[in-house]
Amino acid sequence: MVWDEFRVSISKQTLSRELRESGYRKLSARPRHHAQDDDAIPAFKKPSPPSWQRSGRRSHAVRP
């Protein structure tokens, strides 16, 4: 991988250490259960609230 791109031979451990020192972090996907039913997931998801809502119509009646 690194050799193909940059023609540099480096161990995975050294590459990992250098990347961490440069501020990069390893990201990993959230684990999923092996028996998870992909078809049932939408039924249990909660809808996200809208980011904004139009307020109700106000009357502009003049108070005495």
Rank of each mutant, 00 (worst) to 15 (best):
M1L: 09
M1Q: 10
V2L: 05
V2Q: 06
W3K: 15
W3E: 11
D4N: 10
F6I: 05
F6D: 03
F6P: 00
R7H: 07
V8F: 09
V8N: 03
S9P: 00
S11M: 03
S11I: 05
K12V: 03
K12I: 02
Q13T: 06
L15R: 01
L15C: 02
L15H: 02
R17M: 06
R17D: 05
R17C: 05
E18Q: 08
E18D: 08
E18H: 05
E18R: 06
L19T: 05
L19P: 00
R20K: 13
S22H: 09
S22L: 15
S22D: 11
G23M: 01
G23D: 01
G23T: 00
G23H: 01
G23V: 00
Y24T: 00
Y24M: 02
Y24R: 02
R25T: 12
R25F: 08
K26N: 03
K26L: 07
K26A: 06
K26T: 03
L27E: 15
L27D: 11
S28H: 11
S28W: 07
A29I: 05
A29N: 13
A29P: 00
R30G: 07
R32W: 03
H33P: 00
H34R: 15
H34E: 04
H34L: 06
A35C: 11
D37K: 02
D38F: 11
D38E: 09
D38S: 09
D39M: 10
A40D: 09
I41S: 07
P42T: 10
P42N: 07
A43D: 11
F44Q: 15
F44S: 15
K45A: 14
K45H: 13
K45F: 11
K46D: 08
P47F: 14
P47T: 12
S48N: 10
S48M: 10
P50S: 06
S51C: 09
S51L: 08
S51F: 04
W52I: 09
W52S: 15
W52L: 14
W52G: 10
Q53L: 08
Q53E: 05
R54F: 05
R54T: 06
S55Y: 09
S55G: 10
S55P: 00
R58C: 04
R58T: 06
R58Y: 13
S59N: 13
S59C: 13
S59H: 15
S59T: 12
H60F: 13
A61F: 15
A61I: 15
A61K: 14
R63H: 11
P64I: 01
P64S: 07
